[in-house]
Design a protein around this nucleic acid. Structure first.
Lengths: 339, 339
DNA sequence: TTGTAGGCGTTATCAA
DNA sequence: TTGATAACGCCTACAA
């Protein structure tokens, strides 16, 4: 059995060349599988053998420098969560899978720790070919990225002047309300987070306009602000207006609300009906089956990557990118037993 | 307001130098903040201004080539899951946070799609300074990595000749059995997956030896093989020997078992008591509170990164790494209502 | 079929 | 204080 020589220093093409009294480019040509360039069978064989024996591997950093392309894409979010978050985890997971098909690798950029400006530098220091972005409009990043040469595609939340792939939040909310309406609900509430997210704004807007269209009076379609995902603060107000159908801005909030109801003995859905949004329902757990909007986040990630690769290829050819476009993917309803 | 010039091509130090009729190295020295090298105040100012105006950012790829160091570390698993998996998600999340302190970035390597050999090439092509590894012993990778110059630390499951950081699985199982014993249980079962994982083997071994020590007869400490996390196939055997305390090899299996019990009307813990392992309990959901072993996976990730950084620094100084060491972190019990 | 020269963008060492 | 030169490892064009 052949064992590659154990070394503390990586082996270069030059090392292989020296070993055989050849020039470094000759070795490089043979090993990079250049079809046009025919070398003598004899030489090819010796080069391949020696390369394997010495454990040669082409250095990707040098390659990247030469080609002006790293085959790595980055993902960045300015929200305070890491990959353990439902949303980010799903996006990253799907990206990770999709990257395989394009022979790309994925780099996680941590806003955690470094200020935005430093991060911005890192994002365009040539280590990534493109970026998948998920940020709120409060991030200073997007202003700069709009004018930078780095190809960027945003997911879930759109930003001005950047291409975006997202879910059809408005349609999701409308479908949700239609279902609630069919089940006889006439009193509604929307639980919205304090933070501003374009996707949540769209959900809220659709909540209001759709119910207005159905002639629901203002007191029966209230919007209640909560601290991020903490539903408890809203419970008193909800109970006073029970029975009520509560549309939570995301699934986690809905689960929090369900738990609170369980603890306080509030009957679901009799007194309070609960819906989520996102489709992060965990069917494995012996809990209630949450009614929610099934958002195709995997498809969002895949589509975003597809767009990003297009942009990267264009830039490689030094062509101007097309005008930024917004893609909205259709959503469906996941029925359950909480309404 | 200064707006950086929008360009399709990145700006280099050479561009800045040309603009000012200076040499490229001079610009580089000033901008890289070399303290020893005093340049005239006048020049410094002009260089900084021009750099900002043109939107210059040092190219990290070139820097990496020069320094022989990328400040990126990789993470790889050969299991079929991506970052959405509880375990991997936690490890990656914790690494992501910990990387901030070391000014490192994290790259996800997808075994998904590319064969192991290709992956192996990628792992040592110079794009990462070190690797966090989580693989089963069936992976061909570890044989080769043992002799490669790339610093590697494994997590959760140790491999021969590689430093490892893991949880004290044996102690966790012993604590679990002690608790079950106190609560009066005398009939036990261990649900093990078909796949071979060193960590699970340790849990299984501890299950057997600890119960043997307590003089539990063989028929009251059975080991049942299941397909990965699917507990249902074991239910018949479990019911026939009820009441029984079931130690699942991980939390997900335990939750699956709980769900099956719920659906079939089997009382927990009366007929079947359930414990998990790992500490991936979701307290947010209105479900049963699983009794499980709280494994400090975040600490595992942090410790592994710490070790990896040490190895990287050593290699940078071209020193030999120390003999591989195994670090086991202590675990505790999370009590609940399922035993 | 193979070697030489040059450059990707940066940093380090020298000399001016 | 600054500039020239070389090197990191690779690839491409051209010349031999």
């Amino acid at each position: 059995m052949k064992t590659p020589i154990s070394t503390l220093v990586p082996v270069t093409a030059r090392d292989v060349a020296r070993e055989l009294n050849l020039s470094q480019p000759t070795v490089s040509r043979i090993l990079s599988g250049d079809v046009r360039h025919r070398a003598s069978e004899e030489t090819r064989k010796r080069v391949w053998e020696t390369a394997e024996r010495l454990g040669y591997r082409p250095n990707a950093v040098a390659r990247s420098l030469r080609h002006g392309r790293t085959n790595v894409i980055g993902i960045h979010t300015n929200h305070k969560y890491d990959v353990r978050n439902d949303f980010l985890g799903t996006i990253v997971g799907a990206l990770q899978c999709a990257c395989g098909a394009y022979h790309l690798d994925l780099m996680l950029h941590n806003s955690l720790g470094s200020p935005a400006e430093t991060l911005f530098d890192k994002l365009r220091d040539g280590r990534i070919d493109g970026l998948i972005l998920h940020v709120g409009t409060d991030d200073p990043l997007f202003e700069i990225l709009g004018t930078s040469p780095l190809p960027v595609v945003t997911v879930a939340d759109s930003l001005p002047n950047l291409p975006a792939v997202m879910c059809d939040d408005a349609s999701g909310m409308e479908q949700l309300l239609e279902l609630l309406w069919q089940r006889g609900h006439r009193n509604f509430a929307f639980l919205a987070p304090h933070i501003q997210l374009p996707s949540v704004e769209r959900r809220k807007k659709a909540f209001e306009s759709e119910l207005k269209r159905r002639k629901v009076p203002a007191h029966a379609r209230r919007v209640i602000s909560i601290n991020y995902e903490q539903a408890s603060s809203a419970l008193e107000e909800l109970q006073q207006n029970s029975p009520v159908a509560v549309c939570c801005w995301n699934d986690r909030t809905a689960y929090n609300l369900l738990r609170e109801c369980l603890q306080r003995g509030i009957r679901v859905p009799r007194e309070i009906a609960v819906t989520g949004f996102d489709g992060f329902r965990d069917d494995q757990l012996p809990a209630r089956e949450l009614v929610t909007v099934n958002c195709p986040w995997e498809n969002v990630a895949e589509k975003a990557l597809e767009k990003l690769v297009e942009l990267i290829d264009l830039r490689q050819k030094k062509q101007m990118p097309p005008a930024p476009e917004e893609i909205r993917l259709p959503v469906t309803i996941l029925d359950g037993d909480t309404i």
